[in-house]
């Protein structure tokens, strides 16, 4: 089997309150829609990007840098959508 390609990318959280329940929920929901694996690393802790609970426990406040590792057939599409979501501050009006 060919070795699977892992794309790595760093994103910075821009919304006011960081990766709390709402953004983490949107993150996990988006990640679950794709045929791809995603992990999120912050300060040496790496968790599944499809688990809202795990994402919340990262305590990623505003300005945190998250390292995303994505692999699988739809890895590029997933990465693109997550990046856009983070850049749009998760579309949360109070946190723009």
């Amino acid at each position: 089997m060919a070795e699977e390609k892992v794309i790595e990318k760093e994103v910075t959280l821009l919304n006011r309150y960081g990766l709390h329940v709402r953004p983490a929920g949107l993150f996990a929901k988006t990640a679950s829609r794709y045929d791809a694996d995603i992990t999120v690393e912050k300060d040496g802790v790496e968790v599944s990007g499809k688990s809202i609970m795990a994402l919340m426990t990262l305590e990623a406040v505003s300005g945190s840098v998250l390292k995303l590792k994505v692999s699988g057939p739809e890895a590029e599409d997933l990465l693109e959508e997550i990046e856009a979501l983070v850049a749009r501050k998760f579309d949360i009006p109070d946190e723009q």
């Binding site: 329940v21 709402r22 983490a24 929920g25 949107l26 996990a28 929901k29 599944s48 499809k50 688990s51 809202i52 609970m53 795990a54 949360i92």
Partner: peptide, 16 residues
């Protein structure tokens, strides 16, 4: 609405 949508994610969270 948004908060409850996240609660749904918590309940759906496979690892949980």
């Amino acid at each position: 609405l948004m908060v409850l949508a996240s609660h749904l994610e918590i309940i759906n969270d496979v690892s949980f």
